[in-house]
Design a protein around this nucleic acid. Structure first.
Lengths: 339, 339
DNA sequence: CTGAAAGCGCTTACAG
DNA sequence: CTGAAAGCGCTTACAG
């Protein structure tokens, strides 16, 4: 049978209260009894029951992380795990544990949120999402429960969130092309459902404007951002009769697909068409040509998200915070004119 | 204030016991009171406190997942998330939640295990590891707590585990080269610390033997499997004066590094040297040349791991089970002679 | 410095 | 079919 605080108390000849106090490190316990109790605990191999403690305490030291969309696709993208890693690292430092949700539909997702929040199992929630009108965000706001979202939400002023400055890094990337003399730059993988792509498109437009290049909507190919293959998006672009000299894809995986398509058509990258992606996946560096991309520092996004959440938990929802994690342009072969 | 079962009971004019029973779906409750209680629950927006329930129940419906090594690198490899996804999917179907550990050292890892197991917070644990003498496995065995490990452990008969048949798929891959007439095949990324690589080397040797090719240890380059870059391993190989006609790397990421090295030396893949990897990462298909690899079905590994764990939890540790997930050879350009 | 008691929010035999 | 009571394993004012 599992040994409890009472067993320890009995054998140590003290009250359960006392044992509880030495566990909690209460300073009002005499050195002598502390040592005695500690010794017995060791002998009996006693471990406090976290559940019981949580119930008495009303503090579980657990946060929930809701992974977007259907679980089936949830971990698909290489940077999601990176975010998780960041959250885990920050949580670990604060002695928090992480409960990962795994819903397969929006409905289930909401139910999970309700359960985690109302079930008193979790002290706060991190939402990984970047959908424009995210139903989970709506749900969380209704619940008045501490939460932060990774990815700028549409209701940005009422919510704790962390994100890159997607608009400005996209601006930078676009300028990188403009500065090299490109006039026709395509933008693949835009989706009005996803804030990230909305922001990135905005930065793209802003750069064009500065260079007095008229925005051409035919150069923007919408896509599901992660699901759609870059191959098909590139194909669509060409079928519109467009043949830009540079292509920006909203994700490296898309960019790889684009390059595959170009290869098949006998178009050389970067000599004929320059290409860049976003998110700097591990293989962008190995790819031939190595792929120009944007490092979003997903680890930091996760890390900061946890910090904001702690903040929100302890401040009792009174303040709204945001955190901008800097992104950096990583220029590689795919976007550089050969000299 | 959070509404409790007592609040509901009072307003519904029944006892807390009755409310508890309708929550539990106890059939001995009259349809009439059930509906009344359900209605009040809705009105008050009542959610059962999971922690309290767990304490009374002695069942938390939570499993722990221990991610190997330092958290910092934990989620690095693309197939870890896939395993997680499999676990999450199976867990979700069984109404289980997942607590992810995040330790940064072996010592911390053991502490986490102790806490999760002895703290009554978790009903079972899945260990993601494939180290040969894994200290966490030792710890778990001591605890007599339900657990399963993903990756064949050295103590394979005393432990629940799930894995591919790494030896046999490696055998197949090696034969794929032998059948094409290759006589000198290098094997990169072996590490005696990791069962996976041990098993894969075994399959490799077996195939050579069948073809009466003498095993040459100079063709085996040890490496940290995931950490080491394929680039440096390939370099080592060449510095030994070896120039095989085919190279097997224990991981696709290694293989990409190898190819990069070969490219730099002006060696063409697959014309001059054929290359293959393991784990079929998302980009292997996009790479130029596309990379021959082994699909390990990480999702299924995770899924099966959860099933075994359920088994172990309900059977009360009385039986030991294993589950072999089939892997498949995916032949692409990098290993095929041009016709 | 330490103990007795009440309480955290549930569940579940037991009795009716 | 339903309720009163005890219990799950802790914590924490309160009293001394």
């Amino acid at each position: 049978m599992k040994v409890t605080i009472n067993d320890v108390a009995k054998i140590a000849n003290v009250s359960p209260s006392t044992v509880s106090r030495v566990i909690a490190g209460n300073p009002r316990i005499s050195e002598e009894t502390r040592e005695k109790v500690l010794k017995i605990m060791k002998e009996l191999n006693y471990y406090p029951n976290i559940i019981a403690r949580s119930l008495a305490n009303k503090s579980t030291k657990i946060i929930g992380v809701i992974v977007p969309g259907t679980t089936e696709k949830a971990f698909q993208h290489p940077f999601l795990p990176e975010i998780l890693r960041g959250i885990a690292s920050a949580a670990s430092k604060n002695k928090y544990k992480i409960l990962i949700s795994s819903a397969t539909s929006i409905k289930e997702e909401k139910e999970t949120i309700d359960e985690l929040a109302n079930g008193a199992i979790t002290e706060g929630i991190i939402l990984l999402t970047s959908r424009v009108k995210d139903p989970c965000i709506q749900e969380m706001m209704k619940l008045r429960f501490p939460f932060v979202v990774v990815g700028r939400p549409s209701q940005e002023d009422k919510i704790n969130w962390v994100d890159n400055n997607n608009s400005s890094i996209s601006y930078e990337l676009t300028r990188h092309f403009l500065d090299q003399g490109h006039k026709e730059i395509a933008f693949l993988g835009f989706s009005k459902e996803y804030m990230v792509t909305v922001d990135r498109l905005e930065g793209y437009k802003k750069a064009l404007e500065e260079y007095n290049i008229k925005f051409d909507s035919k150069l923007v190919v919408e896509g599901e951002f992660i699901d759609d293959t870059g191959y098909s998006l590139a194909k669509k672009l060409f079928e519109r009769g467009k043949k830009p000299s540079a292509i920006i894809a909203c994700d490296d995986l898309l960019a790889f697909g684009v390059i595959k398509y170009l290869n098949e058509k006998g178009i050389k990258v970067p000599q004929d068409i320059a290409v860049a992606g976003f998110n700097n996946v591990p293989l962008s560096d190995y790819f031939v040509p190595s792929l120009t991309s944007v490092e979003v520092n997903a680890f930091n996004l996760g890390y900061q998200a946890f910090q904001l959440l702690m903040n929100s938990i302890s401040s009792n929802l009174t303040s709204i915070n945001r955190s901008i994690v800097s992104a950096e342009l990583i220029i590689r072969e795919s976007s550089l004119k050969k000299k």
